[in-house]
Each structure stands twice: as structure tokens, then as C-alpha cells.
């Protein structure tokens, strides 16, 4: 009975976005992520593509859509770096899957819940990224965990505002 209620709620609350928004929003996030740090040095502490992946995955409440969105966005990000393709792809793919799975169970409209899930998924993304880098690719690079946690906090706070902006775009559509 409980499962049936969850399925019904999922069917009712699934957010639907126009295709143009679905395509252009991640691309714009990646573009800003690549362009703005040239002028604002600390902008690279924010991970806009990750926030967009979390937003769409949670809104769709569909783990498969979240997985594919995360994988594509991560691969494009990887393509712009000097590292092998797939590091961000794997990390964001897992985050998209988890966000899609979690969206069925929690209220994603609440700012407090958004703050928490953004923080948790930012940490998860960093953890998987570093796992791939260190364990799978055996790249012995230094990691500053304090900085990574600060990044997760910043992403969580910025994510609340980014989600609000994306909500307005959705309502306008």
C-alpha cells in the first residue's frame, strides 16, 4: 500500500520540462563553468553542472534519466579538462542515479531539504571523483579534504539559489 502511494505521488509530482530547457540548461551551466573562472578566480569552487544534474534528477524522479544526464554532463566536463574522459562522467552518473532515486522519497521543494541533498551529493561527487582518480587511474595527486568540504558547503548554499532560479524558469515555461 505504501509503495503504491509512493508510485502515485511520483506520477503526480514528476516535473516535466520542455526539451529546449533540458538541453540548454546543462550546456549553459557547463559554458558558465568554463567561461566565468577566467574572470572570477574562485568561481571554480562552484560546480554548476553538478547542481543542474541534481536538480533535474530529483525533479524527474527517474533514476535512469538521472544516470544518463549525469553521464553526459560529466563526459562533456571531462572533455574540457586535461584528464581522461570518464572521471566526472562516472561521478555524476552515480550522483544522478542517487538523486533520481531519492526524489521519489523526499519533498524537494523545501529549501532546507535542498540544502542538505546538495551538500550530501556534492560530497558524494567529490568522493567518487577522487576514488576514480586515485584508485582506478592510480594518479597519486594531493587532496585537500578541508577545501573539498568547503566546496561542498559552498555548492549546497549556491544550489538553493540555483534551484530557485530553475524553478522560476520551469513555471514560466
Amino acid at each position: 500500500m505504501a509503495m503504491l502511494a509512493a508510485v502515485r505521488r511520483r506520477e503526480l509530482d514528476v516535473q516535466r520540462y520542455p526539451m529546449a530547457v533540458v538541453i540548454l540548461t546543462p550546456l549553459t551551466a557547463i559554458f558558465l563553468q568554463a567561461y566565468v573562472p577566467h574572470y572570477v578566480a574562485k568561481f571554480d569552487l562552484i560546480d554548476l553542472p553538478l547542481l543542474v544534474v541534481i536538480y533535474f534528477s530529483v525533479g524527474w524522479r527517474n533514476p535512469i534519466a538521472g544516470t544518463i544526464t549525469g553521464a553526459l554532463v560529466g563526459l562533456i566536463e571531462d572533455a574540457l579538462t586535461s584528464r581522461p574522459l570518464g572521471i566526472n562522467g562516472i561521478a555524476k552518473c552515480v550522483v544522478g542515479f542517487c538523486a533520481g532515486s531519492l526524489g521519489v522519497k523526499i519533498d524537494v521543494e523545501n529549501p532546507g531539504a535542498r540544502l542538505l541533498i546538495n551538500f550530501a551529493f556534492s560530497l558524494l561527487n567529490i568522493f567518487i571523483y577522487l576514488f576514480v582518480l586515485h584508485r582506478m587511474l592510480a594518479l597519486h595527486l594531493q587532496t585537500n579534504w578541508v577545501q573539498e568540504i568547503i566546496k561542498a558547503v559552498i555548492n549546497a548554499i549556491v544550489g538553493v539559489f540555483v534551484f530557485d532560479v530553475l524553478d522560476r524558469i520551469r513555471r514560466r515555461e
Binding site: T67, I68, I90, F97, M136
Partner: peptide, 22 residues
């Protein structure tokens, strides 16, 4: 297990891609 299978499939494809690059 549709969702999980899709996740595993996508992850596997990317891991193979990584292995081909390294």
C-alpha cells in the same frame, strides 16, 4: 532491476573507456 542495470551498464561503458585511455 531496470534502474540498477542501466546504472551498471553506463558505469561499465565508462570504465572500459577509461581503461582504453590509460
Amino acid at each position: 532491476y531496470k534502474n540498477l542495470l542501466v546504472l551498471v551498464g553506463v558505469l561499465l561503458a565508462q570504465v572500459i573507456g577509461l581503461a582504453m585511455q590509460i
